[in-house]
Simulated scan of single mutants.
Amino acid sequence: MKVLYLGDLVGRSGREAAIKRLPELRERLKADFVVVNGENAAGGFGITPAICDDLFAAGTDVIVTGNHVWDNRDILPHFQRENRLLRPANFPEGAPGRGIGVYDVPGGRRIAVAQVMGRIFMDAMDCPFRAVDKALAAYPLGRTVQFTLVDVHAEATSEKMAMGHHLDGRATMVVGTHTHAPTADHQIFSGGTAYMSDIGMCGDYDSVIGMQKAEPIRRFIHKTPGARFAPADGEATVCGVFVESDDKTGLATRIDPVRVGPRLAETMPEVV
């Protein structure tokens, strides 16, 4: 199976770039399934039902979120009616929506997509390790599903990497989001799980992690509150990761970063 996952869409610039590029990327990479992180898609904070519809229309199969998932309150009821929209599985019991979904893929195959949120330097949450173990228990890789994608939405690379090793051999890919900077550590672990600490953002990289520069710099210098952060609106670079797997085992056979745009060095996997 070939799966493309695009990192955090930040504001209008990142959202529109991803929507524009998705059909081309899907065709070029022969992707069977596309996942997008949309938690920063609406003005940099949260996501709306209308943005979900636009992303699905562009070729997205599943949208995952993160710590900004509830920033637009009108998204809460959408989680009850849209099974292609996920939030972290380790939110406390009773939170709207779900943290794992299983979806059909052409060729009679199935993919499980799950997300957990880290706890280091982030809000207090239930244990992500126990949550992902519980979420994946019903869908053994290579038997019930042919591909398992786990997103770790976290600050600390140590926490993300620990999760990758924890799930090595039980998930096809474990990759990180949230820090908005693509890392250079994409690899396949010894047990066959593809890993990357952060797949980067889809947004304007002439920024402070996708936000206009002046206010974040001012806050770091003066340590006082000020204006609301606003997404940078220059031309966006689209970042993500591409993973291919063996349908028999569900384990990864390749992992490649994807970067298309004006600011970072471009890289695109060659797919035969």
Rank of each mutant, 00 (worst) to 15 (best):
D71H: 09
G7Q: 02
H178I: 13
N83A: 12
D233C: 09
F220C: 12
M196K: 08
A154D: 08
P216R: 07
T249L: 13
V102K: 03
T267A: 00
L251E: 01
A214F: 12
A50V: 00
H222W: 07
P23F: 10
M173A: 15
F45K: 05
K30T: 10
Y103D: 09
E270A: 15
N72A: 14
V258K: 00
R84Y: 07
E235T: 02
V34F: 01
I221F: 15
F229K: 06
V238F: 00
G203L: 00
A227T: 14
F147N: 04
H153Q: 08
K213W: 07
I217N: 14
D8M: 01
V260M: 01
S207T: 07
Y195E: 05
P128N: 14
G108H: 14
G7V: 01
D151Q: 13
I199W: 02
R87D: 09
H222S: 13
G11I: 05
D247A: 14
N67R: 06
L149V: 13
T179S: 12
P96M: 07
Q80M: 15
G97S: 03
T172D: 06
E93K: 12
C239N: 06
V132E: 04
L85K: 02
I209G: 13
Q212A: 14
D247M: 07
L29G: 05
G11M: 05
P23W: 12
L22N: 04
M196Q: 15
G59N: 07
L86F: 02
H78K: 08
N72Y: 02
M122G: 11
A154C: 12
G43Q: 03
L22A: 07
M163Y: 04
L76F: 06
A232K: 14
Y5D: 00
G164Y: 04
E82Y: 07
A194I: 11
G142H: 04
K160L: 03
D104P: 01
V175N: 08
R28L: 15
F45T: 09
P92S: 14
V238D: 00
H166P: 03
N67G: 13
V105G: 11
F79V: 08
Q115W: 10
R73W: 10
L22Y: 05
I47N: 02
D233S: 15
G11P: 08
M201Q: 05
Q187L: 12
G169H: 07
V243K: 08
R21S: 14
F147A: 04
D206R: 11
F91N: 03
G7R: 00
I111W: 10
L9P: 00
A232T: 13
G169I: 06
D126M: 06
L136M: 11
S190C: 10
P269K: 04
G43A: 09
I100E: 04
M201R: 03
K20G: 02
R73I: 11
M211H: 09
I19P: 05
I120G: 05
R12L: 03
E82H: 09
F189M: 15
A252N: 08
W70C: 10
F56T: 05
I51E: 00
G240F: 01
G66L: 15
K160V: 01
D123S: 11
D61L: 03
T267H: 01
G94D: 05
D168P: 06
D246R: 13
M117W: 01
R130P: 03
A114Q: 02
P140S: 13
D53E: 15
V260K: 01
D256A: 14
D32A: 13
Y139S: 06
